[in-house]
Nucleic acid binder design. Structure first.
Lengths: 241, 241
DNA sequence: AACAGCTAATTGGTATGATCACTTGTACTT
DNA sequence: AAGTACAAGTGATCATACCAATTAGCTGTT
């Protein structure tokens, strides 16, 4: 993929489909700066003719790259290259979390543990008062109780605000994709039915205190502990799949 | 009939495209176990009729999910659900690394630093003698010199073997996608022209020693230092984009 | 009966053209 | 001058035909 794109045109690309080749061509155009962020592509009809393939094929290529967050389609207006920023490109990452089951969910949480603890530590070192206040607001939303949906949304916003404060958009996009809403809901429901919600509250509070104290090491360990709690819960409830 | 009648009058699925709805339906079928790993889907013609859409549309949906690593198409044989394992689902992750530039590359390295240091620490705690020997082999391949391509391949194999030894396939797949071959080549060429290759060698050696000593903390810090070295180099050479 | 090779049915891949739906710019109306 | 209506451009969907790869079944030989 990386290596074969630019080189030997015949050997590698001979057997793959027309649409696949079109995908590679467009990717190469972007990688080499021929197509830039925000730029408009030729119309489907023109582009198909230009590449010597049918409209069906170029459409498949365009849709594939749209799925990957590289292109954006505006009905009636044309096809454009996205901003190519991490949050565009990593949107599909969430699909993994959505359809993963069993052991893979545990593995995903381990990834989240590594990333979120690093991000929370970084956030502690550079978070602004305004950002910290926002984190506080989400924390209080969680404490207010309410429907599971509201709790889940507040929970996500809490962690998202922290990770964003770390100043690494790429990491934020990945962490965000790692935990789907349906999975978060499962965790909350599970903790609710077992009366363990207070434990989550405590952990959130500790994370906030570490951030407020601008203590990276405390932030790192409290964040890791929090994800680990979810991890442990999941291991004990894997039978539900 | 399939979509609008079956569920709530969702404002969500009202405006999205036919193909997009088909994608969601297939994903839901997989998430709910209606479609299992390795299972075969109806033929394009049957499936299209079943969902009440055209073959073109179902094809777009199928291709999109193929790109995401969820489905696998076998020409003449049918469409199948993949293993749904992380290495299938995260293959597209590499696209981000391929087309990223500038600041995003730095951010990607920071993600890699967090993940690879965690994975290397885990590997130190559980690596087998056989796995350690494999790591050693790749390390010696790097030391032997040779073409840049060979060095790059050996470098990738070295890190890959370590991350795999951590026992988390998901993390391994992500880390693997984080560093494209073209980027690795850039790093090696850059260090070669500045005579700093020996620094990379030293770092690799230290990582290996930490693994051989089964010392997780040493493994964590040596791995982090190594990625940080690349990170620092990149910051100083961002003008090349 | 067992096996090899060929044939035909099955199924995905591509192409084409028609038609629908959305966006945008422009000319017209008020 | 502002707003509206229209028309051109462009993506969305569909239907159909034909090409290409695979698979299963048949045929023929041994």
């Amino acid at each position: 993929m990386t290596s074969t794109a630019g080189r030997a045109p015949d050997a590698e690309t001979a057997k793959i489909s027309v649409a696949q080749r079109a995908i590679e061509q467009i990717k190469t155009m972007i990688a080499e700066g021929e197509l830039r962020a925000g730029q408009r592509l030729p119309t489907e009809r023109d582009f198909a003719a230009q590449l010597g393939i049918s409209r069906s094929s170029i459409r498949e290529a365009i849709r594939a790259l749209t799925i990957l967050g590289v292109l954006e389609i505006r009905h009636g207006a044309g096809v454009y290259v996205t901003s190519l920023r991490p949050d565009d490109l990593l949107e599909t990452f969430g699909v993994v979390a959505e359809i993963s089951r069993g052991q893979t969910l545990v593995e995903l949480l381990q990834v989240r543990r590594a990333l979120e603890s690093a991000a929370t530590a970084a956030a502690a070192a550079r978070i602004t008062d305004a950002e910290l206040a926002e984190v506080r607001r989400h924390l209080e939303r969680i404490g207010e109780g309410g429907s599971v949906e509201e709790m889940v949304a507040a929970d996500r916003d809490f962690h998202q605000a922290i990770v964003r404060a770390a100043g690494n958009e790429t990491m934020a996009a990945i962490v965000d994709g790692l935990s789907s809403m349906t999975f978060r809901a499962r965790v909350w429901r599970g903790h609710h039915s077992s009366g363990a919600v207070s434990r989550l509250h405590q952990e959130h509070e500790r994370i906030y205190q570490a951030l407020a104290a601008r203590d990276p090491e405390a932030a790192r360990s409290t964040a890791a502990t929090h994800v680990l709690e979810v991890e442990t819960w999941l291991r004990a409830n894997l039978g539900d799949d």
